[in-house]
Amino acid sequence: MAAGHPAALDTLRQAIRTDHGFTEEASLPLGVKTIDATLGGGLALGALHEIAPEQPIHLAAAYGFSLSLAARAAGRLRTTLLIQPDFAGLEGGRLYGAGLELFGLSMARLLILRVGHPRDALFAMEEALKCRALSCVIAELTDDAPAADLTATRRLSLAAREGGALALLVRHRICKISSAAATRWTIAAASGPRDNFGGLGQTAFLMTLTKNRRGPCGRWTLTWNHHDGMLTDAAHPVSLAAAITGRPDRTAYASSR
């Protein structure tokens, strides 16, 4: 079998990949043009991204944003791993299965690992990223403990590159120490548009991109449209006609009279 002609099999696999366009997608578009342009096509797959809430109270918003990214990366078949230290569950609440589907994640495609110590979370994340069966690994860290410093994040980045999965590190607080992550986001909950029946309406995020390897940083307000499973720009919910330009100057016209 494979042991007999490894080289021949590899050549075949390569041929199939190139012929049928099975090349690994390098990035995950968020579906919002301005952000995708800033990110150079989308969030890089096989790379580490850090997400933190603007204030501890916005933790759920940061987590919701991560879940929406995980759902986009997972598609319909692949599995997402969530790593949660025990203390994170006590402080910010445990992941609630019934609420997951709002973000398009199915419980059957979800694996949860609870660890006792942040160090274990980093170890598990690194090991999981090397496993090619996962589409996304989300790990939570309760504080900016020295555990996740430049070296640790560098290791995670390398592991993510090896496995090709989306690696998301959700910190409970904004971390000041430098990190090897490809992008860093600060997320706050924003007041979303009301629905027509007096309800709370769609979930909205105020997202600040504070580090971007591939381009400039930025700040956007997005809403999560759970019916279509996509993020939309809150400022331009529908595409508008381009701003009108090239008209004669009104003031000049008035003064000439």
């Binding site: 879940l67 609440g93 609420g99 759970h226």
Partner: peptide
């Protein structure tokens, strides 16, 4: 489709034990 049925009440993503 794994998207939540819009008729069901929305549930939180994090629940305190």
């Amino acid at each position: 489709s794994c998207l939540q049925d819009s008729l069901l009440p929305i549930r939180p993503i994090r629940l305190f034990e």
